[in-house]
Nucleic acid binder design. Structure first.
Lengths: 144, 144
DNA sequence: ATCACAAACTGGAATAATTCCGATATGGCG
DNA sequence: CGCCATATCGGAATTATTCCAGTTTGTGAT
């Protein structure tokens, strides 16, 4: 599994020459303690505020963008719904329930070989996103 | 291949009980003649206007939404970039170039079995989206 | 320790894709 | 031919995200 924890994230910040600030630490803690939720910027903002009172929404946006551009986290992009963030940066499928909106990680045994893709189409893959939409177990149980 | 052409789309409209209007025909023609571009709402709007002078942007949005909710087309969703639409509704990978923004379809020989997913996680897959981001052949050739 | 400077932070204003709304028009069935 | 559910229209509203200009702050070098 390639799920980053707090230590991983901090050491990656150092590696990339990004500064360790109280705001970033608060955001990292918020990300880690809500990783199952695949949190969005609003939730991160609220949670990060609890740890460090001085975090602005602008900073949260800038930081999440920085982190995903540097490969620390994955940004899941949606239409008319805020982006969500995933600490699992390995190739995997996000199962997204159309009814309750829950997002789950699904580990795929053998990934599509990006080497095959490069050979066949000359395209170099740097980042994969796979979303399967449908209905989760819980929602299937419930009527309506 | 499951790439819908004009006839397919029209017959699917009838099947679903959706009305055939001049606006929808113009939008369908715009979609079909730009299918390689994976067009967005703005392009569809411009192109559709050429065919039928009376098409509003609101209608384009409403129609593209209707079509994708009814499975006639696939909606590709992005952050801070307009949604794009794909007439290829089969399971396939969209290769998206980070430099020029071009979107290409990549046919995958064996898809991830949604039956496996259902068995292992109780999740019923209704719609798949796979995006691989990276750099296309043309952009790799060019310096800078 | 202290300095200097690039990087990060802030809050408010700006942006832009998309949706909403109330009114009007129209396709398709009886 | 007429009805009515559905589609269309244009403009206003929404909302997540970015931009901006000014201030603060980590961090590496002195």
């Amino acid at each position: 599994m390639a799920i980053n924890d707090k230590k991983d994230l901090i050491s990656q910040l150092k590696e990339k020459g990004l500064k360790i600030t109280p705001q970033r630490l608060a955001i990292i803690e918020a990300l880690v303690s809500n990783c199952d939720n695949h949190p969005g910027a609003t939730l991160i903002f609220k949670e990060a505020r609890k740890k460090a009172k001085s975090v602005s929404l602008s900073t949260v946006y800038a930081t999440l963008k920085d982190f995903s551009e540097n490969g620390l986290i994955k940004q899941l992009e949606f239409d008319r719904m805020e982006n969500r963030y995933d600490l699992n940066i390995s190739d995997h499928v996000n199962l997204i329930c159309k009814r309750c909106g829950k997002i789950m990680d699904y580990h795929i045994p053998e990934a599509l070989e990006s080497r095959d893709i490069a050979r066949k189409s000359g395209f170099i893959v740097t980042d994969t996103r796979m979303e399967f939409h449908g209905y989760c177990r819980d929602c299937l149980k419930q009527p309506d």
